[in-house]
């Protein structure tokens, strides 16, 4: 039963991922990524990780996909619906060989590993467990992560902000150093 569910989810996941990397329209590629992420959330549910599944849907499919779509819309020149998402045909054979080779290597390593567990432990990790872990054992990492998010936010604002032509920021810097 679990194996059938896994088969359906895995098929959907790999199909959507293949469409992310092959589709010509960039907006469609982003939407197929959303499908991939939702299928991953379904996989997390079968792996007894309800909190991660919720985070996945909220943060990834809700946040990241919206952000990506805004990125696509903000960076196109044409008023066409189709946003081109070409892949370089010259690079395709080598890239295919590289990724297939990497997969073969990883698959070999996985299949050669002895004593991989065949069934889950059955213990459900609740949100309360994760919360206690965040505010106990992993408190320092948790706080460092919040500083990192702040740094990423400031960095994104500084990078993407449009400077007015009248108020050139460099002249301000020059005055200060002079």
């Amino acid at each position: 039963m679990a194996l059938i569910a896994f088969g359906i989810i895995a098929t959907a996941l790999l199909l959507a991922a293949a469409l992310v990397v092959t589709t010509k329209n960039l907006v469609h590629a982003v939407l197929w990524l959303a499908a991939t992420l939702i299928a991953t959330a379904a996989l997390y549910v079968t792996l007894q990780a309800p909190f991660i599944a919720g985070i996945q849907v909220l943060l990834y499919t809700g946040g990241v996909i919206t952000l990506m779509l805004f990125g696509v819309m903000l960076t196109r020149r044409h008023e066409r619906v189709l946003v081109e998402n070409d892949s370089n045909p010259k690079r395709r054979p080598l890239a295919l060989a590289t990724s297939l080779g990497l997969f073969a290597l990883l698959a070999y390593a996985i299949l050669q590993t002895p004593d991989l567990p065949r069934s889950p432990s059955g213990k459900m990790t609740t949100t309360a467990d994760i919360g206690r872990s965040f505010l106990g054992e992993h408190l320092l990492a948790f706080e460092v992560l919040s500083v990192l998010l702040l740094a990423a936010m400031i960095g994104a604002i500084v990078l993407a902000r449009r400077y007015d032509q009248g108020a050139e920021p460099r002249s301000v810097v020059r005055k200060k150093t002079a």
Partner: peptide
């Protein structure tokens, strides 16, 4: 592993910056 290799393929072939981010 298959999903990871799909991402590697995207990063290696895409010419579009957002396509790279998707990979």
């Amino acid at each position: 592993a298959a999903l990871f290799c799909t991402g590697v393929y995207a990063v290696l072939t895409r010419t579009n910056a957002i396509g790279l981010l998707l990979g």
